[in-house]
């Protein structure tokens, strides 16, 4: 106020050397303060709740049974992701094929496996033995058979879990991969053709490596979603982390404390996956000017 009154900006000596004071918005700080206060209050309430015994959580973090559950969850995630990616690649190439039948089949596959919830699929695979009692390999419509065994022996809880997770994963992966392939410039295909490269070779050497850059970020997210989706297999006693933790709490009645154990390990696994994703993306960025 006083400066404005005492100064005349038309005079050069007054307009030089003016100090700039930046505007400081107050509202975001009020919001931030409130958020911090709420978080602290929530954590405090959790920590001091007399009904919760956190020493139980700590005691079970590295329990043998829990660690075994973590290991099963890791196996389920990695195996399902691997199968999902390979199967997804085949389905994606089918959808991109010039052959109408292959295209239709691939489209149908994606439609079915993306529509059925993973939980429903797990239940179906977990109970498949009720419908199909024996699995046998032979020549159809003849008596020739190579082997035959009860479905329940062939598809135990672990295999059923893998089937359910991998199949629904493959449908999503197919779409992610297809998107990546379509993102590759058409000129790349023409250049490869003009050099005499076959379609197969072009796909393998030119298209997929470039598509990978587009595919990896959503694929990473998909993998993280999958790690968490493995908890669904507890409904068919899949033996994963959540199954184990539930088993323990069923005896100790320390339900929330045991869920705390699960939360801890899911956090650890997802964090490791996120770090891996970060480095993979950085590696694939070679040759690309950002």
């Amino acid at each position: 106020m006083t400066a404005e009154q005492g100064m005349d900006l038309r005079r050069p000596e007054d307009s030089a050397d003016l100090v700039v004071v930046r505007r400081r918005p107050v509202f975001p700080w009020i919001l931030a303060g409130t958020a911090v206060a709420l978080t602290v209050w929530f954590l405090f309430a959790l920590a001091t709740n007399p009904a919760l015994d956190w020493s139980e959580t700590a005691a079970y973090l590295f329990n043998r049974q829990v660690l075994h559950g973590v290991w099963v969850t890791v196996q389920l995630s990695v195996i399902s992701a691997a199968i999902g990616i390979i199967l997804g690649l085949v389905i994606a190439l089918g959808r991109l094929s010039h052959n109408k039948v292959l295209r239709t089949l691939a489209t149908g596959y994606i439609a079915v496996f993306r529509s059925v919830p993973a939980l429903v699929q797990l239940l179906v695979w977990g109970n498949i033995g009720l419908v199909i009692r024996n699995v046998s390999l032979g020549i159809p419509f003849t008596d020739i058979g190579f082997f035959s065994m009860p479905t329940n022996e062939l598809i135990g809880p672990f295999t059923a879990s893998i089937l359910g997770l991998a199949l629904s994963e493959s449908a999503y992966m197919a779409e992610v991969i297809r998107g990546g392939v379509l993102a590759v410039d058409k000129g790349q295909l023409e250049a490869a053709s003009a050099l005499g490269m076959t379609h197969m070779r072009t796909t393998r050497r030119i298209v997929l490596p470039q598509a990978l850059r587009v595919i990896v970020p959503p694929m990473g997210n998909q993998f993280i979603t999958l790690i968490k989706a493995t908890s669904l297999v507890s409904v068919i006693a899949g033996g994963d982390l959540l199954t184990q933790v539930s088993n323990i709490s069923a005896m100790s009645y320390r339900v929330v404390e045991m869920l705390g154990v699960a939360v801890f390990w899911y956090l650890v696994m997802v964090s490791i996956a996120s770090i891996g994703q970060h480095y993979l993306e950085r590696f694939l960025a070679k040759g690309v000017r950002e």
């Binding site: 000129g187 250049a191 050099l195 005499g196 076959t198 379609h199 030119i206 490596p209 470039q210 070679k286």
Partner: peptide, 26 residues
């Protein structure tokens, strides 16, 4: 067949308006 087309194409080099170099290769 695709293989034969590719074999014959090799004798003809082509340069494109937008270069179309493979960006993931040196």
């Amino acid at each position: 067949s695709e293989k034969e087309i590719c074999r014959r194409r090799r004798r003809v080099g082509m340069v494109f308006q937008h270069f179309n170099l493979f960006p993931h290769m040196t």
